[in-house]
Simulated scan of single mutants.
Amino acid sequence: MKFEPVDVSLFQWPTLELAQALLGKLLVKETEAGTASGWIVETEAYIGPGDRAAHSFGNRRTPRTEIMFGPPGYAYVYEMHTHCLINVVSGPAGHPEAVLIRAVEPCTGLEWMYERRGAGKKKQELANGPGKLTKALGIVKADYGRPLFEHPLFIAEGRPVATIAAGPRIGIGNTGEAVHYPWRFWEAGSTFVSR
């Protein structure tokens, strides 16, 4: 299968809308070994300076968050514990917002996913979490700053999502009122979401 990146205009959507619009789209990573992809089934929105759960809360600008201050549509990849996580930079330049991709349903390149994640895994376990999906797809810290509308790491058109569910984000304790914001979105009924 040959996938093509979406038009950059997708990333101009307001962050909460983009977080929902990304559901059903394909996240694709091309490597020398081969291409792996998955339908996005779960996302979380982070609304920058006013969101205590965001890395850019209070306009905190560091070498790690720098990409978030630029135009939307780029990959904000960072390490947390031993895992890489991928976010889609959103919001206009100067407004550091992002959408975390929390889970994907494997589409192509399952052989590479099993090789990276372990042959004994169930298909549902390959990419049902933000650290699992980056490992499964071969997304690494060096992908930081890549445009997600160009090869080799990009978002492609996918499939329609019938029903979108929303609820609080996961794993953001100690963030005050932000812990309750219903800014996690997922494909209702999917067995590939993180929880």
Score class of each variant (00 low, 15 high):
Pro5Phe: 03
Cys107Ile: 13
Glu32Asn: 15
Thr175Asn: 07
Lys121Trp: 11
Gly158Asp: 00
Pro130Asp: 05
Met68Asp: 06
Lys135Ala: 15
Gly48Asn: 07
Gly167His: 06
Pro63Ser: 01
Lys123Met: 15
Gly24Ser: 09
Ala119Leu: 12
Glu150Met: 12
Ser90Phe: 04
Arg195Ala: 13
Val140Arg: 14
Gln124Tyr: 14
Arg184Thr: 02
Gly129Pro: 03
Pro71His: 08
Leu10Lys: 01
Arg195Asn: 12
Ala93His: 04
Pro147Ile: 06
Gly120Ser: 14
Lys135Met: 10
Val8Leu: 07
Leu27Met: 08
Gly50Gln: 11
Pro96Thr: 00
Met1Phe: 13
Ala36Gln: 04
Thr65His: 09
Thr35Trp: 02
Phe185Trp: 08
Pro182Asn: 04
Gln20Pro: 05
Glu125Lys: 11
Ala93Gln: 07
Val179Arg: 14
Glu187Phe: 08
Pro160Gly: 11
Asp143Phe: 01
Asn59His: 15
Met1Cys: 13
Thr65Asn: 06
Thr108Ile: 14
Gly138Asn: 06
Lys135Pro: 11
Ala142Met: 07
Arg169Glu: 01
Pro130Leu: 04
Lys123Trp: 09
Met1Arg: 15
Ala136Ser: 08
Ile139Tyr: 03
Glu157Ala: 12
Ser56Lys: 07
Pro63His: 05
Glu97Gln: 14
Thr82Gln: 12
Thr65Leu: 04
Ala53Arg: 05
Trp183Cys: 03
Ala33Asn: 08
Ser90Glu: 03
Asn87Cys: 05
Met80Cys: 14
Pro147Asn: 08
Met1Ala: 14
Val193Arg: 12
Phe3Met: 11
Glu157His: 09
Arg52Ala: 13
Gly120Ala: 12
Ile155Leu: 00
His83Glu: 13
Phe154Ala: 07
Glu105Thr: 06
Arg64Gly: 03
Ser37Pro: 05
Gly24Cys: 07
Ser56Asn: 07
Ala53Ile: 04
Leu10Phe: 05
Tyr114Lys: 11
Glu157Cys: 06
His55Ile: 01
